[in-house]
Amino acid sequence: MRLAELVTATAIALLSVYLMWKSGEGPSWDPTAQRFANIGINIDGRGPGSGFWPFWLSAAMFLASLAVIFNWATRRSRPSRSDDQYLDAEGKKMLVQVGGGLFAFLGLIHFLGYYGAIFLFLIYSVYYIGRHKLRLTLAVSVAVPVFCFFFFDIAMRIVLPKGYLEPLFLPLYEIFY
């Protein structure tokens, strides 16, 4: 966990520097604007520029991450004293299984739309990870998309993306609108 603490704090420090640099960018319509011309508190009598808020906050975040590193070096914070593993083997497996499942779920939405992706994601999680019976799995993974369709598409008029499955829904629209 000691290593993880240092790596994370360093990453946050680097992110802060990137954000400071990014905050200094001029407006998009003016390519000639100088970087960091927009971080003052009163520019041309028109108050603080667009970079004022994010720049100084990023600078403060940078200092805070240095403090975390200082606490790490002097072993003042709990993670910097702990000898536990950051994520044990079991935890890593979980992250790959569940996190990976979520990534696949979102990726599938682009192709199969929400309803197809929900169906497959639930089969994966309930049947393969949860080890429930196939009957229960099918019941859940059919019921949830059907409920969502009626709740969002029909009742709330929030049309969820359908991807390549769109033609299948046209007759449903015909019936319900």
Binding site: P167, L170, P171, L172, Y173, E174, I175
Partner: peptide
């Protein structure tokens, strides 16, 4: 509803 469903079927035909 019945005529809606049949219209729906027709619409599906169009789409396909």
């Amino acid at each position: 509803l019945v005529s809606k469903i049949s219209l729906g079927a027709a619409a599906l035909g169009f789409a396909v």
